[in-house]
Amino acid sequence: MNIFRLAGDVSHLVAILILLMKIWRSKSCAGISGRSQVLFALVFTTRYLDLFTVYISAYNTVMKVVFLALSYATVYLIYMRFRNSYDSENDTFRVEFLLIPVIGLSFLENYAFTPLEILWTFSIFLESVAIMPQLFMITKTGEAESITTHYLFFLGLYRALYIANWVWRYHTEGFYDQIAIVSGVVQTIFYCDFFYLYVTRGEEIRTPS
């Protein structure tokens, strides 16, 4: 554990909490892509199956359980509790275009050809593209509420901090995780355009039409 890794995890947690609290307090999930949130729940589910097989640390276990619980709570709020406010007409990104290549890639490139390892790889690849339905929705409607942009900022920052963590670990431990690093860099690149708009235009984002 180093400062970049800890800051990355905190940033990830903050992002998820911002989104959950926004939906809970406004009793609305307008402007939020339910499809992206389902993909994130799938990411956590397939990655954290090792909760049942190996014990790493109390921190590791607690964080995994928290991320799983919060991601399912978010999906529940969008599709059940506040489904009247769900903007399904603009949440139309075809997720099969993400899932099919990601499933294929996880079978081709993995650390071991076992169910758990393939699912772990699937989750890493899927995480890198899971935000695309949300970004697509913002492009389609041409706007995002400021609180939604804060969510995206912290979510992007999390993987960017993980990159710093990987650089740090490579230099201090000589350790690197090729699949996670490549996917993490790809994931962060998707946020660059958003980061630019966030910084230059301020919180509320309107895409040029």
């Binding site: 554990m1 890794r5 995890d9 990830h12 090792d50 190996v54 790493i56 640390s57 590791n60 964080m63 995994k64 991320f67 650390y111 390892e117 772990w120 993980y162 963590n165 350790f175 690197y176 995780d177 090729q178 699949i179 996670a180």
Partner: peptide, 10 residues
């Protein structure tokens, strides 16, 4: 290239 999976990262 050496390939290792990180087990402790989230």
């Amino acid at each position: 290239a050496k390939k290792t999976k990180s087990k402790d990262e989230l």
